[in-house]
Amino acid sequence: MTESIALLTIFVLAAFVGVEVISKVSSTLHTPLMSGANAIHGVILVGAIIVTGSADSVIVVIVGLLAVVLATVNMVGGFVVTDRMLEMFKGPGARKKELHK
């Protein structure tokens, strides 16, 4: 039972951390933030690999592989698209510099 308690403790503490790190985000970045957070939950890929890697029956392997594909799309796509958005956020003067090039 101690392991359950440890996991529960981690859950509660992580919830507070999640609220805390987001609470000061400017609304300018809400879209990239949502997309970035979206990419992070793509880490379910780890779970998909573990389940598929320990599977014995063909059907479990197939469904597991489907989960791997879906989770990879979530994770890779999420990080790439967030980067694409953030690339465009340039500070003051950045555009001028580009025009002078």
Binding site: F11, F16, V17, A37, V43, G47
Partner: peptide
């Protein structure tokens, strides 16, 4: 919750972070 089932702390932390942040957002 999936992290809890698998006993995987990373999934637990990452999922909870996103869950909490998403709820606040």
């Amino acid at each position: 919750a999936g992290g809890y089932v698998l006993g995987n702390t990373l999934l637990l932390i990452a999922g909870t972070l996103v869950g909490a942040a998403g709820t606040l957002l």
